[in-house]
Design a protein around this nucleic acid. Structure first.
Lengths: 105, 105
DNA sequence: ACTTTACTTGGTGGTTTCGCCAAGTATCAA
DNA sequence: TTGATACTTGGCGAAACCACCAAGTAAAGT
């Protein structure tokens, strides 16, 4: 069945939440487990408010969950499937050449 | 191993190429096989120049291939992995609720 | 109550993206 | 070679995005 326009729009909103270097870096880091905002700030190296806005955006898109414990707010991946997602991305943007890795295309 | 900033930037560039409703719609349509620009124009419902620019962007990002045959230029997916990619996206943005489908999370 | 720490929200200016129109290129047919 | 079709490229205004600063909120310690 062909995808409808509304389906594509909904999916694109999720993809957009990952389509920024800092946001993707955050998501990749969270694959190893939850982190608080201050740790992610150090990772990204941007202003705290900037990181916070990235995190809110990703949470609103459904990519992240957040939980407050004491003074800290811990963010975690909403879904463990990010690895498959990135495997596809890396096939599309190989370091060199075109889809030469095993099992690709 | 943790992802580096340059890795995230390279990946984000690919993801960005799919992070737009019209571009994603195009990619989804091409899962069923190649199409020429004029067919994709009808699918998207935008100006021909707009569609052409979306296609160029996706090709430059490595998502699409293009081949000229006669007057037409046929675009096709560069990688068959898009299905896995979208499966993950749909888990992140379920129509309702949170990751309730089988095999998710 | 006051301070500190951790984070969010509002605002702002600079950059990027987006979609259309107009003009250009390339291929094929007559 | 003239014309038609298929697509690309340049340019422009409108909208969205991004990163910082400043100010606000919330929990915990003193």
């Amino acid at each position: 069945m062909p995808a409808s326009k509304t389906t594509s729009t909904r999916r694109a909103a999720v993809i957009k939440a990952l389509a920024h270097p800092s946001r993707l870096l955050i998501a990749e880091a969270l694959m190893d487990g939850e982190m608080c905002v201050c740790d992610l700030k150090d990772l990204v190296g941007a202003d705290l408010s900037t990181v916070s806005k990235h995190l809110s955006l990703m949470r609103d898109a459904g990519v992240l969950n957040s939980e407050k414990r004491g003074l800290n707010i811990y963010y975690s991946l909403a879904c463990a499937c990010l690895g498959d997602f990135l495997r596809c991305v890396d096939q599309l943007a190989p370091a060199k050449g075109k889809c030469t890795s095993k099992g690709c295309c």
